[in-house]
Design a protein around this nucleic acid. Structure first.
Lengths: 236, 236
DNA sequence: ATAACAAAATTGGTTAACCAGATTGGTTTG
DNA sequence: CAAACCAATCTGGTTAACCAATTTTGTTAT
């Protein structure tokens, strides 16, 4: 158990060292945006790390948009300029692991937006998808079973209906962590009455989106979160 | 040029195939949360793909929180339950590439929040960091040079001051794409008078955060974005 | 029968050799 | 002299062999 975290941290530390070395290389050699980085072989030798570790790190920096690898050609520096590049590197290296509070805070922010956008943009297909998730949640609750998963899937169906793939992606990234923390802190263990209320809230959100009323949808989502919010903050 | 996108899409397509195969495996074999996936060697052979491709895919699914690799032990399925698992897989596979509109929309949402949080939580260190970025921006503008990078770095310093590492991470992810699109569409090419106004807006945001006035900070940020917003929407 | 231990097999991670396509520099040809 | 072409070289991607730690399993001693 402890070892897992240790190796993870070690791994992260190694990767951060490589990131710092790449930053220094770009800085020192005055590499301009669009320039080609030295080949992976050269870099791995120069840095004294395995080529696979280096490739892994490059892939991470590709996610952050700082590098672009082109097959059989080379790895290139993104066109964001040297100053932004150095700033981004600094921030990425200093970035710390998210805590539960940050996750919930972010989730609420994202969902109030996706909800509103979904009301504006949802297609018939989106509605069908949402309805399906809604029914699955209600069924599970009525059976008296745990329904955290179905709950979250309904919210994800809203994110999808928002038509904003960036917001959708962000919701997907935070959702598993949210679920595990919910189960960990037993956020889901609420009484039957409250769960029935939860279904109604979902239905009201769904109806607002169906009727293309963004203001109402957001308002209903806010109410939905209000209970969750105070429940979460009681834990900490 | 065209080839780059082709190979990227091909790569993505291959990865998505592997993701689908992993999903089917979990589904078909009724693997429970916490269960161990077959070894990388077995999977790569079974799927008919290279082990490195498989590892790459596993790493991607680790980012989304669906899998957890433990050295010398195995790859394990996250504790989010089978239903959430299948839903997540579906959404990830259907996720499409973000467009500029989605990026700007997301950015504005994130920044109105980070700005507010920064006003509540900023430390003295954060303030110093922000002030530095602010001055760098003003200097560059006063010299009549392009200052898109400094502009964005000021905004990133606010994200950092928000004390929410998830929001900070999301800002880091979208920023490079924002910069390149800004330069592509020449969003930065505005007249001197407007740039002077931009500096004042930054200063006002900074002051509001310094004075720990979240409402004012958000309001000032909203004004700041109003100009940007209408400018962006004129392009499309 | 059970607990302790050790050896063998299995694991993700690493390294090194290999591949196909892109780049480049020199040569040829109009 | 310039443009076209071709082969040598360099690239990221792939494959296969290797490593160290872990897990399992069989054996032994109590």
């Amino acid at each position: 158990m402890k070892i897992e975290f240790l190796t993870r941290d070690e791994n992260r530390a190694v990767q951060n060292e490589i990131i710092a070395k790449i930053r220094d290389l770009i800085n020192f050699k005055n590499l301009e945006p669009g320039d080609k980085l030295p080949s992976e072989r050269m870099l791995s030798e120069k840095f004294g790390v395995s080529r696979s570790s280096l490739r892994e790190t490059i892939q991470k920096l590709e996610i952050y948009g700082l590098l672009k690898s082109r097959p059989q050609s080379g790895t290139f520096i993104a066109d964001i300029g040297p100053i932004a590049m150095q700033g981004m590197f600094k921030d990425i290296l200093e970035l710390e692991a998210p805590d539960f509070k940050a996750l919930v805070e972010t989730r609420i922010l994202l969902e109030l937006k996706t909800c509103r956008l979904a009301a504006l943009r949802r297609t018939e297909e989106d509605l069908a998808h949402m309805k399906e998730a809604l029914d699955a949640f209600a069924d599970k609750v009525n059976k008296g079973e745990d329904a955290v998963q179905e709950d979250l899937l309904f919210h994800l169906s809203i994110a999808k209906a928002s038509g904003n793939s960036t917001l959708n992606m962000f919701m997907l990234i935070i959702t598993p962590e949210i679920i595990t923390n919910f189960e960990k802190y037993h956020v889901c263990n609420v009484d039957r009455e409250r769960l029935g209320l939860r279904i109604r809230e979902h239905e009201e959100i769904f109806e607002a989106i169906k009727n293309q009323d963004p203001t109402l949808a957001k308002e209903k989502m806010k109410v939905h979160f209000k209970m969750l919010y105070e429940y979460c903050y009681n834990i900490e």
